[in-house]
Amino acid sequence: MAHTAPLISRRSATRLALAAAALSAFAAAPAAFASGDYPNKPIRLVVPYPPGGPTDIVARVVAQKLQEQLGQSIIVDNKPGAGANLGAEQVARSTPDGYTLMVATTAHAINPSLFSKLNYSITKDFTPISQLTSGPLVIVATPTLQASNVKELIALAKSRPGGLNYASSGNGQSTHLSAELFSAMAGVKMNHVPYKGSAPALTDVMSGQADLMFDTMLSSMPFVKGGKLKAIAVTSSERSPSAPDIPTIAEAGLPGYEAIAWNGMLAPAGTPKEVIDRLNAALRTVLQSPDVKQRFDGQGFAAKWDTPSAFGSFLNAEVEKWGKVVKTSGAKVD
């Protein structure tokens, strides 16, 4: 009997070890199952802007095609407010399981340096999935402006320091900071006149109340085609397929200039890699489909797929680039 107790202890220890291993495997199973079975319920795609705008249009085109690839419904949820920060903060705080995603824009790269207080970090609280679109702004001017190309615009601005008024859709928006980047690179000073949206700003440019504006092609090109505005140049490094006759700012007199409006898809930080890879692969098919490319070309932007790491590097570079422009411009929002 002296040897019985140690024998029972060894058996008990073995059973305990096996039980612990089984519990450990069971605990790990839900996460593995969730990733491997993804998606098994509808996905919410947050758009931090109102319905009907350029970002909302992109989101709905992508959502429709993405749900065909994934076999699950994708619900577009508009959460506008606070300069696109309200929706971003909600997604950053969401469960990182791949069922809450966000469409980010150039504004999210600008906001870290523009707002004195943010309750999230676009680079730390999110995991990049892929870029979705890339498109230029276009410099449009009142038809009577005595400049029809970039070199003439720079010469006119230099001859009238602070005398040219440029409109924007709001303080700190890409329509504002793209013009500030232009001014800094060209060594000119123009007077900024912020509006609440592109529509009233364009109205004043058309009437001559403001001289020019850096605006999205979606909202401004119909007026260019109608003769109510004249297009001077696009802000991308290459000409836009939707307006191939309009030169780039870089080729027309300001080498190295580039400012693009973009959309990308993000998930909360900590989302499993398997889920990110699944979404990225599906987006590749979506963004390379001819009908999606055609839809986006008609809106003035190009479909652009990227790997998660490449999109992450792009996002970091955008945050750094616009941070310098914000600092130079002195723009701030409390």
Results as ranks from 00 to 15, higher is better:
residue 1 M to Q: 12
residue 6 P to W: 06
residue 6 P to E: 10
residue 8 I to P: 10
residue 19 A to H: 14
residue 20 A to N: 08
residue 20 A to T: 15
residue 21 A to K: 11
residue 23 L to Y: 02
residue 23 L to F: 07
residue 27 A to P: 00
residue 27 A to T: 04
residue 29 A to F: 04
residue 30 P to V: 09
residue 37 D to I: 08
residue 38 Y to G: 02
residue 39 P to Q: 08
residue 42 P to K: 00
residue 43 I to G: 00
residue 47 V to W: 01
residue 49 Y to C: 13
residue 50 P to A: 13
residue 52 G to M: 11
residue 53 G to K: 00
residue 53 G to M: 01
residue 60 R to T: 04
residue 60 R to D: 05
residue 61 V to K: 04
residue 61 V to M: 06
residue 67 Q to R: 06
residue 68 E to F: 03
residue 70 L to C: 05
residue 72 Q to I: 10
residue 73 S to T: 14
residue 76 V to D: 12
residue 77 D to C: 14
residue 78 N to Q: 12
residue 79 K to I: 15
residue 84 A to R: 00
residue 84 A to P: 08
residue 84 A to F: 00
residue 87 G to H: 04
residue 87 G to M: 02
residue 92 A to C: 07
residue 93 R to A: 14
residue 94 S to Q: 05
residue 94 S to H: 08
residue 98 G to M: 03
residue 102 M to C: 06
residue 103 V to H: 01
residue 111 N to V: 02
residue 111 N to T: 15
residue 120 Y to Q: 04
residue 121 S to K: 13
residue 122 I to W: 00
residue 125 D to A: 01
residue 126 F to M: 04
residue 130 S to H: 02
residue 132 L to F: 05
residue 134 S to K: 04
residue 134 S to R: 04
residue 134 S to F: 08
residue 138 V to A: 09
residue 138 V to H: 03
residue 140 V to G: 01
residue 143 P to K: 08
residue 145 L to F: 05
residue 147 A to W: 07
residue 149 N to E: 15
residue 151 K to W: 06
residue 151 K to Y: 05
residue 153 L to E: 08
residue 154 I to C: 03
residue 158 K to V: 10
residue 158 K to P: 02
residue 158 K to E: 05
residue 160 R to G: 12
residue 161 P to D: 05
residue 162 G to F: 09
residue 166 Y to R: 13
residue 168 S to T: 07
residue 174 S to D: 07
residue 177 L to T: 09
residue 182 F to S: 06
residue 183 S to N: 11
residue 184 A to R: 12
residue 189 K to I: 10
residue 191 N to L: 11
residue 192 H to Q: 13
residue 192 H to R: 11
residue 197 G to I: 03
residue 202 L to N: 00
residue 204 D to Y: 05
residue 205 V to H: 05
residue 212 L to S: 03
residue 223 F to Q: 08
residue 225 K to T: 14
residue 226 G to C: 06
residue 226 G to T: 09
residue 226 G to N: 10
residue 228 K to E: 07
residue 232 I to G: 01
residue 235 T to C: 04
residue 238 E to I: 07
residue 240 S to L: 05
residue 243 A to E: 11
residue 244 P to T: 10
residue 250 A to S: 15
residue 256 G to C: 11
residue 261 A to P: 01
residue 262 W to T: 02
residue 263 N to D: 09
residue 266 L to C: 08
residue 268 P to K: 00
residue 272 P to V: 13
residue 275 V to S: 01
residue 277 D to G: 11
residue 277 D to E: 14
residue 279 L to V: 03
residue 281 A to Y: 09
residue 281 A to P: 07
residue 282 A to I: 04
residue 283 L to V: 10
residue 284 R to I: 00
residue 288 Q to E: 14
residue 296 F to S: 06
residue 298 G to V: 12
residue 299 Q to K: 14
residue 299 Q to T: 15
residue 300 G to W: 08
residue 303 A to N: 09
residue 310 A to G: 12
residue 311 F to M: 14
residue 317 A to H: 11
residue 317 A to E: 14
residue 317 A to F: 06
residue 318 E to G: 10
residue 321 K to E: 05
residue 322 W to Y: 14
residue 325 V to C: 07
residue 327 K to I: 01
residue 329 S to H: 04
